[in-house]
Write a protein that binds this DNA or RNA. Structure first.
Length: 274
DNA sequence: CGGAAGACCTGAAGGC
DNA sequence: TGCCTTCAGGTCTTCC
């Protein structure tokens, strides 16, 4: 479910946890992404430390402590990271809980596509999940020159290029369609076809789409909520995603849905030129 | 190299 | 009410 704007929204709403001491940890023992179970022994080592910051790299969150380790979290499709009162009933599919006195930081994830790990901060970028990430689309910004350079010689479709986390970290399925619509580019166009001008347009479109979604607190189509349980408003502002059969907001043509690499893709057949 | 298809999972929604 | 199919903000692997 969560792309950069949603993960960043979670990060921002987690700041009340900063300063809290981790008094206990618990995990369900269930396997998450790639059948990996949360590393119980490493989680236990977080006990006694205080949360000093919550950072985000691409779609990953890092909960820093005053020890040498950080908690690494990926929300997958249905993951939630929320602050609850310790007395609140635990949601179904809760898989990791950090006890923070009268509060708890809880990770729940019905589909279990998320990831939980503990990393040594001094070597965090060597973690396999983080080592492959390109520049962060928000923190680092989308450098149009570098973006264009990365597209040289690439036969991949633009949709795949934009989703490639090693090119740019943070863009997911919704905002890929949104950015390509905004840049007036067809999702199936090959990346090497980008001109300097169209690459710049796409780079700017990605930045704007992400900034707007973030302002709206993210897109809640199904599962996404922030750390306080609040939904985002951005679903009301989508131009193409989930709008198949409806008029293009630019030219009134009928928006189409196709499937690219197994994923729903939305575009305007008229104003997004092949 | 790239793309399609399948894998990992659960639950909501729609058709009958 | 139930049963069945389809679909879902993400990776990762395998096969062509």
């Amino acid at each position: 479910m969560p792309e950069l704007p949603e993960v960043e929204t979670v990060r921002r709403t987690l700041t009340p946890a900063i300063g809290a001491r981790i008094a206990s940890v618990w995990d369900s023992g269930k396997g998450l992404h790639m059948a990996r179970t949360p590393p119980r022994a490493a989680l236990k080592k977080l006990i006694g430390s205080r949360i000093t910051a919550v950072r985000r790299i691409g779609k990953y969150l890092l909960v820093d402590t005053d020890g040498e380790r950080s908690l690494l979290v990926h929300l997958g499709m249905t993951g939630r990271l929320r602050i609850h009162k310790a007395a609140d009933v635990r949601a179904n599919h809760t898989h990791v809980v950090l006890g923070l006195g009268d509060r708890e930081l809880r990770f729940s994830d019905p589909r279990r596509f998320g990831q939980i790990d503990v990393v040594k901060r001094s070597a965090e970028r060597e973690h396999p999940a983080l080592s492959i990430l390109g520049p962060d689309a928000l923190t680092d910004g989308v450098d149009p020159v570098a973006f264009h350079a990365r597209s040289r010689g690439k036969k991949a479709m633009l949709k795949a290029f934009v989703l490639d986390q090693s090119v740019l970290a943070g863009v997911g399925n919704i905002y890929a369609s949104e950015a390509l619509w905004r840049a007036k580019l067809r999702p199936t166009t090959r990346a090497h076809k980008l001109t300097v001008e169209s690459a710049h347009r796409l780079a700017l479109a990605i930045s704007e789409v992400i900034a707007n979604a973030l302002e709206n607190g993210g897109t809640s189509l199904r599962d996404f909520v922030d750390a306080d349980g609040a939904e985002g408003e951005n679903a009301d502002y989508l131009w193409v995603y989930d709008r198949a059969g409806q008029p293009c907001l630019r030219c009134k043509s009928v928006i189409r849905r196709s499937v690219l690499q197994g994923r729903a893709t939305f575009y305007c057949p008229t104003c997004q030129k092949p």
